[in-house]
Design a protein around this nucleic acid. Structure first.
Lengths: 208, 208
DNA sequence: GTCTATAGCCAGATAGAC
DNA sequence: GTCTATCTGGCTATAGAC
């Protein structure tokens, strides 16, 4: 991608840090997520993260005030992203079943795209501070609620069998989120196969 | 429970340790699982575990040679138990669908009974040594394979729709295992509701 | 089987130069 | 923004008395 050729500065209107610094932050977050996912948050030192981006441990504290804050950024970003990118699909046109199907597909694709971050958010949440955990959970619970609501709407519309919408939402999302545990290395086609199979199972059931 | 009144020693024929020592081991494992589950393996010290059973940190090394060995015992026990207790249901009488349904019910009940240990096994596996992780995974993979096989048998028998049996097994078990994340505090009836709803979803699907 | 005492190590985080 | 140097405190694990 070419840079703009006029003299205008690419002003950073969205935050207080420079673009350069935000690039470094993103680099650190990505490296940290990878290491946390494979070795576990508690077994990874600041020096390990620093080494992965080619700097010294102390330099990380220019970008983050603590190790936990790096974990927080990982968990928050990967929990907020589906809220902002997938939930609008529930407000699109179509029946509840159609809208839910669209969301589930988007969810699985996002799960693959942010696979390591998802693993970290799922497994290392217990290392967040109470406040940070609560903030992450706000997004997670809102997502759950919206999914539950569209399921309930599908039941009212007669598209879905009458079951406890909360249990249905929990089961559905647990089934989907589990994908991050084994999807590593899959192709785009594999991901679509998973989505197709899961939708078939959930909507039509195993019985022919 | 009364002790035996005759002079016979309660010989320990099943292992090299005394009954008293094995009780202590179990006590340590339970306390450790509880702490690991809520605070994360890496954030729990040997002193924390010791305190929970009313002894000093150093005394734990009379029962376990390392902290990781405690984690290993938790993970191994909770992964082996469903293999030994649930898989025989797949060899019982009935059609594949009936046998699978029995297994899924037993799986959810076990998930609740060993809830904290399950959480530890799911979230803290990355802190096991390579050898211990491999040993735990042997059981896990065997369980998966047996579930996949009964699903494939159900498809051959025409009881199940033709889908990729591996994906179906993964989705099913991920959906079930997720239950340990939120079932805390549920009653026996609640657990049966979950099992009923999940079986309905998986076998018949959401569409009426 | 549990204790006290401590070895030995490594972590997260800070200070201040460049 | 990154460095070197280092503080401080925690941890796992061991030694040896009781």
């Amino acid at each position: 991608m070419a840079e703009p050729t006029d003299g205008a500065e690419p002003a950073n209107r969205t935050g207080s840090r420079t673009e350069r610094s935000r690039g470094r932050r993103a680099e650190i977050v990505t490296a940290a997520a990878q290491t946390f996912a494979t070795r576990g948050y508690g077994n990874v030192g600041m020096r390990d993260i620093a080494e992965a981006v080619g700097i010294r441990g102390a330099s990380l504290y220019h970008h983050f005030s603590s190790k936990e804050e790096i974990l927080y950024e990982i968990c928050l970003a990967v929990t907020r992203e589906p809220v902002e990118e997938n939930l609008p699909l529930l407000d699109a046109a179509g029946t509840p079943a159609e809208r839910l199907a669209g969301l589930l597909q988007a969810h699985i694709r996002q799960l693959r795209r942010r696979r390591v971050e998802h693993l970290v958010a799922l497994h290392e949440r217990t290392s967040l501070t109470e406040e940070h955990l609560a903030e992450v959970d706000r997004y997670r619970q809102y997502y759950h609620r919206r999914v539950r609501d569209v399921i309930a709407a599908g039941m009212r519309a007669g598209e879905f069998r009458e079951l406890d919408p909360k249990l249905v939402a929990l089961g559905m999302l647990d089934m989907l989120n589990g994908v991050s545990g084994w999807i590593r290395g899959a192709s785009d086609d594999d991901v679509e196969d998973v989505a197709d199979t899961y939708l078939r199972m959930l909507f039509d059931g195993l019985r022919p």
